[in-house]
Design a protein around this nucleic acid. Structure first.
Lengths: 230, 230
DNA sequence: CGTAGAGGATTGTTCTACAATTCACACTAT
DNA sequence: ATAGTGTGAATTGTAGAACAATCCTCTACG
């Protein structure tokens, strides 16, 4: 008997702790906007609602705080993170650095191109159905697939976190439709360049894309969050 | 009364929880090699040694697990991370992506140049005194200062973690002296290029540097860690 | 109108308890 | 001998109670 193909099964068998499952629930609730930025997550309320002890819940909170989705204020509790304008700017600085850096080095049609194609067609589907939430998701998926081209687990995780933070920004914006819509065409353009194996050109297009998105986002964000004290 | 210069004081006043202080202690112990990769940190032992409850200690463990310094195995406890060769390769992939990406965009003498100068002179000082541990630290400091040129908190944090992971690799290596020594001159060379404001050239030198370091490290690491099962 | 203080609510931390799981070691059967 | 089996001790996972520390609200007083 060999143990060859069993490595994959290990993840299935790998039971997770209650704290991690709780964290997963809260994470998706936050990312879907059920808990909005600034909302307080009281230990008592959430603990009884999910039927877990304070110990376990606090472990989950720690996990999410470290992912920057929650902020922990001593003796005050945990809150869904509210990003400042500086945060948004920093997020885009990282995006430019990483996304463009990854794309730039590409010289032939990359292996993970299918994921990019899938993300674009997801976006078109969402546009037809007027599903703006789905359009935003497809857009993030596109960029996640972009960094996946680096085939680096740590880079994937980093950008996963960055994009999760960006979702927090979208949730406090007035009109996500108008924001996400125009970028579908630009994703398509970048995809086309990559299908030609022209990484540098794609990186250049991406840089312009990100610069525009940041500017627009910062402008829109400044309105919704008038004075958050730095 | 203005609230201008109080932002800095906030960190001082910002009391940390016991869990964070415990995490800080363990973090430095790990980074200085007191706990070597693979070592198990038992809740009971460490809890009584530091005089904190299991709950608090577990919170500290969570923090460090998220920083990848510890791995948490369900019902088995936490262990100091043992990096695989794949990890080392991935770490260098991230380093190339981020460090070179940051340096490459520089077109004039950057603001944070002093830190780089300081790191190089730290390295020379360590070399004179034959302090190999200090030489390694100075080297990491140099690269930390390099990414600091991006002036992006998230990038700083990311690379802080990456370099902390690399320290784990160094601790299981036989002869850190021979490894660190030759890179001091190359740091100096990169610094010189940056002092001329030539980012692209510095990025190129850095890329070669990192490629060499990775190769050497992987080779040395493969010997000390013969078969860690993937 | 502003301020000080009392009281209640919430979090920080420890402790105890028990279930679930792993690990080490002895024991059996071939 | 050796592989497999099983038992029990040790450790982690989770819950819950308890109390201290801190924050928030609201009232009363100047």
């Amino acid at each position: 008997m060999t143990t060859e193909g069993l490595a994959a099964d290990r993840l299935l068998l790998n039971r997770t702790s209650t704290a991690e499952r709780v964290a997963a629930i809260l994470r998706s609730r936050i990312s879907e906007g059920y808990f909005l930025p600034g909302a307080r997550l009281a230990e008592d309320t959430i603990g009884t609602a999910l039927g877990v002890s304070r110990n376990t819940l606090r472990e989950a909170f720690r996990l999410l705080s470290h992912e920057r989705l929650l902020v922990h204020e001593l003796n005050r509790g945990v809150f869904v993170r509210t990003l400042s304008i500086e945060d948004v700017i920093d997020l885009y600085r990282v995006r430019v650095l990483v996304e463009c850096g990854v794309v730039r080095t590409i010289t032939e049609v990359p292996r993970g191109i299918d994921q990019l194609v899938a993300a674009v067609s997801d976006g078109e589907e969402a546009l037809r159905r007027q599903g703006w939430q789905a359009l935003g998701t497809a857009n993030l998926k596109f960029h996640e697939a972009l960094v996946a081209l680096a085939e680096s687990p740590r880079t994937d995780e980093l950008m996963g976190g960055v994009l999760a933070e960006l979702r927090l920004v979208f949730h406090v914006m007035a009109d996500p439709k108008r924001f996400h819509e125009p970028y579908l065409a630009r994703n398509k353009e970048i995809l086309a360049l990559l299908q030609q194996g022209d990484g540098p050109a794609a990186a250049e297009a991406l840089a312009v894309y990100l610069r525009d998105a940041e500017e627009q986002l910062v402008k829109a964000y400044r309105d919704t969050q008038p004075s958050t004290f730095a």
